[in-house]
Design a protein around this nucleic acid. Structure first.
Length: 364
DNA sequence: CAACCGTGGAT
DNA sequence: TATCCAAGGTT
């Protein structure tokens, strides 16, 4: 790190100075409660402040203490998390709340090495909690910090490589001012979020401009470097909404993977977009309706739903049956339409159910 | 350790 | 419309 010494000199102080006059007032900055800081950090993982704000307020008000969260059911917590995505965060949050109650007597762990043992808490989040709540000297290394360090010091090691993690981590830690990690960590992240943004950073007003390597060499837009890029796969989902009188069948997604422990409908996945006449020949379709008279009531257009790593093409089919077979009831849960809103569902399902015209056939 | 895990805003 | 990617973590 010797080659950076000249640049390092005023770096932390400059950031803290900038922070003192440019910081946003965010609710999780008004507290030293490690529980609330933890909540905010989990919510904000890979999530913008604007998107997470309402969820943070809801969780703090509904679950003011860690015991309240631990006392809830996972299903309730998932329902509260609905729409925020990355649902393992909610499952881990709930799991860790119970850990804290059972293994720490409800007292939030106050040391980095204990904090990082919580499920869903990795190096970044442990450093954030340890520094914000307990002012311990751990450097946070998130996307903002990677970007700022990469540009300011001109580091071209890919930030998503093992080497990059080591290199940036060492540099980040060397920059943390002793006894002021809390303020400094907030400052460097806020600077990345507001000033040194991924696209169109405001270099013209940047207090670090004169010492910024990337600005000097006009490579701001090239840094930070990443080596991996996600390939997006297409998936084709055919949802069967099967109704008997005022009830329909829900599927709890208990398997590992996307939307685990959320609910959706009986699902037939296909390798391409299917017409109904093709769907009808599908082995799983036949298996679902064997020995059951059914009638197709309605069919949606194909709807596209985008995930970070998938393009989903979804169709919904409404069916009516006289009664659910015991076979169906062993695989699915019969739920009165009126009770649908209490089940946690993926955004895709929430969107569909939210369009009332899609529900008309359920009441015919 | 590469792949997986959501959603929404910006460009 | 397509792509990027945001206060990452787990397997």
């Amino acid at each position: 790190m010797e080659k950076f010494i000249d640049q390092c000199e005023d770096f932390p102080r400059e950031l803290i100075r900038w922070y003192s006059s440019n910081r946003r007032n965010l609710p999780w900055r008004d507290t030293n409660d490690p529980y609330k800081i933890w909540l905010s950090e989990i919510i904000l993982q890979q999530t913008r402040v604007a998107q997470g704000m309402d969820y943070y307020n809801k969780f703090v008000s509904k679950y003011p203490k860690v015991n309240d969260l631990a006392a809830a059911t996972e299903e309730e917590v998932l329902k509260d998390w609905q729409g925020l995505g990355y649902y393992s965060r909610a499952r881990n949050l709930h799991h860790s709340a119970k850990m804290i109650v059972e293994e720490h007597s409800g007292e939030f762990p106050d040391e980095y090495n204990s904090i990082i043992k919580l499920k869903g808490v990795g190096e970044y989040t442990a450093a954030a909690i340890a520094s914000f709540a307990f002012n311990q000297d751990y450097a946070v290394l998130d996307g903002n910090v990677f970007r700022l360090l990469s540009r300011f010091f001109g580091i071209k090691t890919p930030i998503d490589s093992t080497q990059g993690k080591k290199e940036f981590s060492k540099l980040a830690q060397s920059l943390v001012p002793k006894d002021d990690a809390a303020t400094y960590n907030q400052a460097i992240m806020e600077f990345g979020a507001l000033q040194c943004t991924p696209v169109n950073p405001d270099c013209s007003s940047c207090p670090l401009q004169s010492k910024c390597f990337a600005y000097e060499h006009d490579i701001i837009k090239d840094l930070p470097l990443k080596e991996k890029k996600v390939k997006v796969q297409d998936r084709f989902l055919n949802y069967l909404i099967i109704q008997s009188s005022d009830q329909l069948l829900l599927n709890k997604r208990t398997q590992e993977g996307i939307w685990k422990n959320l609910f959706d409908f009986p699902l037939i996945e296909s390798s391409s977009s299917l017409k109904y006449l093709e769907l009808e020949k599908n082995k799983d379709f036949i298996s679902i309706f064997k020995e059951t008279d059914f009638s197709l009531e309605a069919e949606s257009d194909e709807r596209k739903h985008l995930l970070s790593h998938r393009r989903l093409y979804c169709k919904f089919y409404h069916f009516k049956v006289d009664e659910f077979s015991t076979d169906l009831l062993s695989k699915y849960r019969a739920v009165p339409v009126s009770e649908l809103p209490q089940y946690p569902v993926p955004k895709l399902i929430e969107n569909y159910l939210g369009e009332e015209t899609n529900l008309l056939s359920l009441f015919k």
